[in-house]
Amino acid sequence: MELNTEEIGEVTVVSVLTQVIDAGNADDFKTGFASIVKGCKKIVLELSRVNFIDSSGCGSLLSCHRQIKSLGGDLKICGPQEMVRTLFDLVRMYRVVDIFDSKEEAVKAFLT
């Protein structure tokens, strides 16, 4: 699982460079992501390169979100492709996590 980190002010932006998050690598993602964002409070997960996520991938995102929330932080998601957005709609992801089209919008949402 390839993840890239970028700091914008107080916000940590994690970009997923792997194109797929499915049952085959959802655990890798969870572990990798958790280690990267350890200690961070304001986190944006950038998904623009991801063209496929399944329910396990979704589950790992929700798990990460819950984890961060429990430590007093927040996770926002940005840049989902059409397939990923359709899946998020199916599992009502927007009810739980804030989802933005662009990284800038997601970062701005933390600053205001």
């Binding site: 399944d54 329910s55 396990s56 979704c58 589950g59 790992s60 929700l62 798990s63 979100h65 819950r66 899946l87 199916l90 599992v91 009502r92 009810r95 739980v96 996590v97």
Partner: peptide, 20 residues
């Protein structure tokens, strides 16, 4: 049935299949 409140990581599979 699936739970959509973010409290669970699984249980979406059948719901997804049925709707796709």
């Amino acid at each position: 049935p699936p739970v959509f409140d973010g409290s669970r990581d699984d249980g979406f599979g059948l719901h997804i299949i049925a709707h796709t």
